[in-house]
């Protein structure tokens, strides 16, 4: 658990360091607590709808009053300089922040009309509906088959071995990995290449049939070819799933998403259609970031 904490702290300092060395940067600008997000935060048919989300790590105020809808069967990309809070926000959506000591979340995050931070909500069931794929591929040190079967097994999704086999095959097919691994399902998942591992992790996540899949920089540890493969996959998955992806690559956001949200120092600065954000940003900070002036 402390591991996450340190990486978080690391991310913060990494984000602040350039602002110290280049004081003319707009990074220093404080948007103020009454800042209003530019653009339309609501959509017609949201999978998740958040209002006034605040996140604190101990004393640190990491997310400031973020309201945002995640549209059903859409890909929404979250971009912004490192330390801007985009990953933290993403982790709120399936309460992965629960595992971090000293982390406090306020505000409303509605999934199907219910606040997921409500006391009556079961984290386990929530995460079965909102799956997650992480920055670094993290297959379990088990066989490829067992990696995929793990989720369905713990949730009791398969009544017998045949059903389980079907789920594994279906998930691998959807993740576009089936043809590559169908002959070596018993081989360890850690033996695959980086890109394959990440697709394995995606297959693992969708094996439990979630409604939403959260992806935290899923391609940042991969080479360009593997990245392209993942991006293709994300586009295909949109048919069946709602996807929220955090990325540090603007090109990637432009390629895979329909909507884009720009985060800056814990604020959601601007949100809108991806084409609009990249061609005609309305806020100065968004524009500076898009045009590569910082970040």
């Amino acid at each position: 658990m402390s591991l996450i904490e340190t990486t978080m702290v690391g991310e913060e300092t990494a984000g602040e360091a350039p602002s110290v060395s280049r004081p003319e940067q707009p990074m220093q600008e404080d948007l103020g607590s009454d800042f209003q997000t530019v653009g339309e935060v609501r959509v017609d048919n949201p999978a998740i709808s958040t209002t006034g989300v605040q996140v604190y790590y101990g004393e640190k105020h990491a997310i400031r009053n973020v309201s945002l809808d995640i549209g059903k069967n859409q890909v929404i990309a979250m971009i912004g300089p490192s330390g801007c809070g985009k990953s933290t926000y993403l982790r709120c959506l399936n309460r992965m922040n629960d595992t971090i000591e000293g982390c406090r979340v306020e505000g409303e995050i509605l999934l199907d009309g219910e606040n997921i931070y409500d006391k009556s909500i079961d984290v386990v069931a929530l995460r079965a509906r909102v799956g997650m794929v992480f920055q670094k591929p993290n297959p379990f040190p088990k066989s490829i088959y067992d990696n995929i079967a793990y989720g369905p097994k713990i949730h009791g999704l398969a009544a017998n071995r045949t059903e389980l086999d079907e789920i594994v095959e279906r998930s691998l097919r959807r993740a576009g990995l089936w043809e590559e691994v169908k002959d070596r399902l018993d081989a360890p998942g850690t033996g695959l290449s980086g890109g394959q591992q990440q697709r394995l992790c995606i297959a693992r996540a969708i094996a439990v049939e979630p409604e939403v899949v959260l992806m935290d920089e899923p391609a940042s540890a991969l080479d360009p070819i593997a990245t392209a493969r993942i991006e293709e996959l994300i586009d295909e998955l949109r048919e069946n799933y709602t996807i929220a992806i955090v990325t540090h690559s603007m090109q990637q956001a432009a390629r895979v998403s329909q909507r884009t949200a720009y985060f800056h120092m814990g604020h959601l600065v601007e949100v809108g259609e991806t084409t609009q954000i990249f061609t005609n940003p309305r806020h100065k900070l968004t524009e500076d970031y898009i045009t590569g002036r910082f970040g």
């Binding site: 658990m1 591991l3 996450i4 399936n94 992965m96 595992t99 984290v123 386990v124 069931a125 929530l126 995460r127 079965a128 799956g131 997650m132 794929v133 992480f134 670094k136 993290n138 297959p139 379990f140 040190p141 088990k142 793990y150 989720g151 713990i154 949730h155 992790c201 693992r204 996540a205 439990v208």
Partner: peptide, 24 residues
Amino acid sequence: QSLRDASYGLGATQSETIRQVILP
């Protein structure tokens, strides 16, 4: 920690994570 995250992210309980991911 990434292995724990992966397991929790799939909706495993703590003991399931320990028994089926961490201990192996």
